[in-house]
Simulated scan of single mutants.
Amino acid sequence: MPAARTSARGSGARASAVKGAKIAQVSWREPRPAPIVLVSGPEEVLAERAIAGVREYLRAEDPGLEVSDIRADDYEAGTLFAVTSPSLFGEARLVRVSGVEKCSDAFLQEALKYIENPQEGATVVLRHSSGMRGKKLLDGIRAGTGGGIEIACAAVKRDSDRVDFAAGEFKAARKRIQPSALRSLVSAFADDLTELAAACQQLIGDVAGDITDDVVAKYYGGRVEVSAFVVADTAIAGRYGEALVALRHALASGADPVPMVAAFAMKLRTMARVAGNREPSRQLAQRLGMKDWQVDRARRDLAGWNERSLSMAIQATARADAEVKGAARDPIFALERMVTVIATREPFAPSR
């Protein structure tokens, strides 16, 4: 059975993701009902999961749940109050409101009145993707009017975010996937989170055992393209064998050695700039002209590195850069030597 609805902060709650918000910020992976549920942010896949999760939660409590859908941009006056009013038999009510970011004046006026006095037994889910339209309503909800919660669905843009998303899919299903298989899967659907989510669910549903490289190759081999940054991330993390496999996979997929080296150089330069600085991430990022997340990522990447190993990695990358641009006959060997030095953090040994 779901946890009691009266809990102000369930297991899916986390620190407020919206500046100035006074209501609970709840993870889209662990949604729960409240009189008002604000589902904000541009990532539709996460929003759909959150809204579906609220419905499943309510239906588990009351199989007779009444579900109504309203469009905020094509709204008829009085509809919100009509669908939230108690029914004859007292069933729970779920009202899903789409398009709040382009809501009509009529909807905005009634919604502002509604959150002042939400109907008992009704859960109103407001979907707002982006923009300033409806800001007064959002500000009221975030200030605590109506006893609501917020489920923020921020855009998933970075490779690391997509890896975290896919890893969460398998973790939620209690399904194991090899790290290299996970990265290959994410690379296959780097441009479409909807397709990545569908691919994860297909593997979870179809495959009886663990998800391996062979399984991913069997299902999506024609789409898998390992990016230069996946190779760099794996090598910098010290996973030597996986890094070589990722490198060979990337080259087999048509990756160019020159941008491959450039990806390593970019990450190592950032690590070198951040290394040894103990300033708060935001302050350091401002001073270096970087983003907060870039500083945080570089600090994670620096785990296990020291001045000697970082210097050696930068020198190996500089050598590889010259060699893949014509200073050597075999650019592939140059890449493998660079990856070996970076992943092992030791001088290159040809017998490895």
Rank of each mutant, 00 (worst) to 15 (best):
K218R: 15
P63Q: 12
A190V: 09
P280H: 05
K113H: 13
I211F: 10
S87L: 08
L108W: 00
P35D: 11
A316C: 13
S311Y: 09
G64N: 09
D192F: 07
L65T: 12
I51C: 08
I211R: 06
A328I: 05
F348T: 06
A3I: 05
G99W: 07
R71N: 08
A265W: 13
A316S: 15
I141P: 04
F170M: 06
V216W: 03
D301L: 14
D233H: 07
G144S: 05
V231S: 01
K135D: 11
S85R: 14
V163N: 03
E195T: 07
A188W: 04
S309C: 02
I115D: 03
A82E: 13
V124D: 11
V26W: 05
Q109H: 10
V100H: 07
R183T: 03
A72M: 04
R345I: 05
V39C: 11
P118G: 06
K267D: 10
C103F: 05
Q315W: 04
Y220V: 08
I151H: 03
R297T: 05
D62F: 13
S40N: 04
V39K: 10
T340D: 06
V216S: 03
A21I: 00
I115V: 15
V37Y: 08
Q201N: 12
G221E: 12
I149V: 12
A208R: 15
V339S: 08
A24E: 11
V97D: 05
D159L: 13
V95H: 02
R176Y: 00
V274E: 02
L310V: 03
V186R: 01
C103I: 05
A173M: 07
L244C: 12
A303E: 09
K291A: 15
V341G: 02
Q201Y: 00
R127A: 08
E110L: 13
V215P: 02
W28R: 04
V341K: 06
F189Y: 13
A154F: 13
A52F: 03
T317K: 10
S227G: 02
V83M: 07
Q119Y: 02
L126R: 03
G304C: 02
R273C: 06
G90Y: 06
M1R: 12
E279D: 15
D161C: 01
L38Q: 07
F333D: 14
R223F: 14
A166F: 00
A262H: 09
R32S: 11
S104F: 02
S351L: 13
G238D: 04
A167C: 00
A155C: 08
S253N: 15
C103V: 06
G222L: 06
R329V: 15
A122K: 12
G222P: 02
G144L: 06
S311A: 15
D292P: 14
V124Y: 11
Y240E: 07
A106M: 07
K325S: 06
G222D: 09
R158Y: 03
K136S: 13
A152Q: 14
A47P: 01
I211K: 08
V83Y: 03
I23Y: 04
S160Q: 04
A298D: 06
L138K: 09
A250H: 09
Y220N: 03
R59V: 10
Q201H: 13
K157V: 14
V156Y: 02
D159H: 08
V215W: 07
L288Q: 13
A34K: 08
E120V: 14
D191I: 03
A243Y: 10
R300W: 05
L46S: 12
